[in-house]
Simulated scan of single mutants.
Amino acid sequence: MGRGSPIPPMLRRKIVEQYQKGVFQRKIAKSLKLSSSTVHNIIQRFRESGTISVRKGQGRKTILDARDLPALRRHCITYRNATVMEITTWAQEYFQKTLSVNTIHCAIRRCRLKLYRSKKKPYLNMIQKRRRFLWAKAHLKWTVAKWKTVLWSDGSKFEVLFGKLGRHVIRTKEDKDNPRCYQPSVQKPASLMVWGCMIACGMGSLHIWKGTINAERYIQVHMLPSRRRLFQGRPCILQHDNARSHTALITTSWLRRRRIRVLKWPGCSPDLSPIENIWRIIKRKMRQRRPKTVEQLEACIRQEWDNIPIPKLEQLVSSVPRRLQIVIKKKRRCYTVVNMALSQLF
C-alpha cells in the first residue's frame, strides 16, 4: 500500500479475523505487508467501536473538494494541450489556494482524466475535411462485398533501426551523461522503399527497392500480375493515394489504356485505407526483430508480409464502412459546434 492510501475494507476484515484467531499484530503486519502501526490502529478501532469502518471526517482533507473538480475538469478539457505546470498556475489564480503540481496530478486523476501521449494524425485544412466528408458520404452505401472488389495498394518506407528498444531509460539524475543511457540516432539511416497491394482474401506482390519512386518505376512494379492472380479475371477497382507518381500523366494514361478503373481518393486520408494498418503491423514487427543490415531488413519485411493472416485482411476491409461513418460523424459534430457558437453570437 502506498503512503497515505486508504486500507480496503477486505484487508481490514482480514486483519480483524487474524486478530480474533490469536495471531500477534507483528505477524499480521508482516504477512499482509503493512506497517505495525496501521495494524495496531485498525485493531484498536475494532476494540473501541466493534466495527472496522473508518470514522467520518477521519484523514487529511483534500485541498480541492468535490465542488472544485468540475471547474478543473472543464479547464483541462478546454485546454487539452496545456502542461501540468500551466494548469497549476491557472488553478492557483482561479481557486485562490496554494497548490502544488502533485496536488493537481491527483486532482486530474480524481476528474477521471489522465495524461497520454498525443496521437499523430495528418493535418487537414477545411477544404480537405470537406472533400473527405463528401467522399465518405458518396461511398457510404457501398457494401462490404463491394469493398472486397477493391485492390488496395500503397508504398511505405522502412529504415534500419539502431540502439536499444523503447524511448525511455531507467536512470538517476546524475546518470544523464552515462553512455549506457544514450539513445543513438543516425542522421540518414539506410532505408528501403516498399510497394505492395492487398485484397480481403489475399496479399499481392511485394516490390522493394532503394531510393524514391517515380512514375516510370511505379508503372514497372505495378499490380497487373497481382491483379490477375487475386481476381482471376473478375473486375476490380484500383485504390492508390494522390502521390506524384500516381497522379502523373504517364501513370494515368497507362492506366487508361489498360482500362483499369481507379477509385477516386481524398487527399491526406491514410486512415481510410486498410493497407496502412498492414504497414503498421510490419513496422511493429521490425522494431521487435531489429534487423541490423539492409539485407536483413528486406528478408524480414518479405517474411512478415507473407505471414499476414487472411482473417486479419477480411477484418481490415470490413472496417471501411465504419471508418466512413466516423468521418461523417466528426464532420457533423464540427458543424453542430459552429452553429452553436453562431447562435450564441447572434
Rank of each mutant, 00 (worst) to 15 (best):
R3G: 06
G4I: 03
P6Q: 11
P9D: 15
K14Q: 13
V16E: 08
G22R: 05
R26Y: 03
K27G: 10
K30E: 13
L32K: 01
L32A: 03
L34T: 01
T38C: 08
I42V: 15
G50L: 13
R55L: 15
K61A: 12
I63D: 03
A66E: 15
R67A: 04
R74I: 14
C76I: 08
T78A: 13
R80E: 14
A82E: 09
E86W: 01
W90F: 07
A91E: 05
E93L: 10
R112T: 07
L113W: 01
K120P: 15
P122N: 09
P122M: 10
W135M: 03
K141H: 15
W142Y: 03
T143Q: 10
V144Y: 00
A145T: 04
K146R: 14
K146H: 14
K148T: 02
S156Y: 01
K157L: 10
E159W: 06
L161E: 10
R167A: 10
V169N: 11
K173W: 12
D177A: 15
Q187V: 00
K188L: 11
S191K: 10
S191L: 04
M193G: 08
M198Q: 04
M203Y: 00
L206P: 09
W209P: 03
G211R: 06
I213A: 11
R217M: 07
Y218V: 05
Y218W: 06
Q220M: 06
H222R: 05
R228H: 09
Q232S: 09
Q232G: 07
G233E: 06
D241R: 01
S245K: 01
S245V: 03
S245F: 00
H246E: 09
A248W: 04
L255G: 13
R257C: 07
R257L: 09
G267I: 05
D271R: 00
P274R: 05
I282C: 09
R290Q: 14
E295P: 12
A299R: 12
C300W: 06
R302C: 13
D306H: 08
P311W: 00
E314S: 03
Q315N: 11
R323Q: 04
L324A: 00
Q325V: 13
V327Q: 00
Y335N: 10
V337E: 06
V338C: 12
S343F: 02
S343M: 09
Q344A: 12
L345W: 06
